[in-house]
């Protein structure tokens, strides 16, 4: 019984939130990794791209809500997301056409691209705040819980409850679907393979008649789509605030780099590694210990590795350690 309680407790506070946050990071990191693998620079504007996609989705969601279109019990935002993706794709392609292409043609160094992406970050950050404002936006609707803690307790008779929020389920399922689609695309379609080929060996890809412009275009389309999905899911689960997306950039970079930047599998693994490290290191194990310890034991500390305040710092520290010890990451990144 105690063991079951412990499992439920960990499931409720570690596993479900970890899978959710990990999925959001993984989707974000995939975008960063695609840009790195194909366009070969670290895209500092990716957080803003996520925010932009989420913003468009929110605007469309409001429109749908106003005209009373919904897909109960699912959040309306899921219905709005395709529009969000489409607009973000167009915007991103516009940015490429106006900004990045010029530097690509001049074969600018990765550092210059990085600085260019900082410019794009500023611009998009301003645009987003100009359109939707800097404040919090709540756009979640539909059923809140799929599984409520109280109901779980009643049915199982356990002390601990397991709850599953709709947003958590939607996040995890969407992430799985998107990742599966992406991998199918990269490994089983001609276009996807040509992207991997270009990422692997640009010269040979050109010799094989692979059109670099098309590869770049497809990459931005995928990046914009991934960013919109990641941004929307994050906003649904937590809340939408432009500033927060800029703060997400570093955990996302951490995920991409831990797994090996340029490597999509690595990005996914990295996302979950970062998410779970944050939660595992800052979780208070007091109740777990109480269940497992002999009856009557008393503990006055929270039994935490690190205070809850340290949650975000965990990802920064992992990032720095990985960069110093093994900059290629777990999966030896560099190509798709």
């Amino acid at each position: 019984m105690d063991v079951l309680n412990v499992i439920t407790l960990l499931g409720n506070f570690l596993i479900v939130p970890g899978l959710t946050y990990g999925s959001q990071l993984a989707l974000g990191a995939l975008g960063v990794t695609l840009v790195y693998g194909v366009l070969r620079f670290s895209n500092f504007a990716h957080g803003e791209t996520m925010a932009f996609g989420a913003m468009i989705t929110i605007l469309v969601t409001w429109l749908l809500q106003a005209s009373e279109i919904s897909i109960q019990p699912l959040p309306t935002a899921l219905l709005a997301m395709p529009v969000g993706i489409a607009v973000t794709v167009l915007f991103t392609l516009g940015m490429d056409r106006l900004v990045y292409r010029y530097h690509r043609e001049r074969k600018a160094s990765p550092v210059i691209f990085l600085i260019v992406s900082i410019g794009v970050m500023f611009f998009m950050g301003g645009l987003i705040r100009f359109i939707i404002g800097p404040g919090d936006q709540i756009f979640f609707d539909g059923t809140r819980f799929i599984l409520k803690a109280r109901e779980f307790k009643e049915t199982t008779g356990l002390n601990e409850g397991l709850s599953l929020k709709m947003t958590q389920a939607v996040t995890i399922v969407t992430a799985i679907v998107i990742v599966a689609l992406l991998f199918w695309f990269l490994n089983h379609t001609r276009t996807g393979k040509s992207m991997r080929a270009y990422s692997d060996n640009e010269n040979l890809a050109l010799l094989s008649g692979i059109n670099p412009n098309k590869v770049v275009l497809i990459t931005w389309v995928l990046v914009a789509a991934l960013a919109t999905v990641a941004g929307t899911l994050y906003g649904l689960d937590k809340s939408f605030k432009p500033f927060v997306y800029m703060q997400l950039l570093l955990p996302i970079f951490a995920s991409a780099i831990v797994g090996g930047v340029g490597n999509p599998l690595g990005a996914i693994a990295g996302g979950y590694i970062i998410a779970f490290s944050e939660l595992i290191l800052t979780f208070a194990y007091k109740r777990v210990v109480l269940y497992l310890a002999p009856e009557g034991t008393e503990i006055d500390s929270l039994v935490q590795f690190l205070g809850t305040d340290y949650k975000i710092a965990v990802s920064f520290i992992i990032l720095v350690i990985v960069l110093i010890i093994r900059p290629t990451g777990l999966f030896r990144g560099k190509t798709l």
Binding site: V111, L250, F316, L319, V320, L323
Partner: peptide
């Protein structure tokens, strides 16, 4: 001492991370 050996864009990300740690 620990980070300057990194390639330029990695150095960028590392220093960004370290500065966040300092603020933290």
């Amino acid at each position: 001492k620990i980070a300057l050996g990194l390639r330029s864009d990695y150095l960028a990300i590392a220093t960004l991370g370290i500065s966040e740690i300092i603020i933290f």
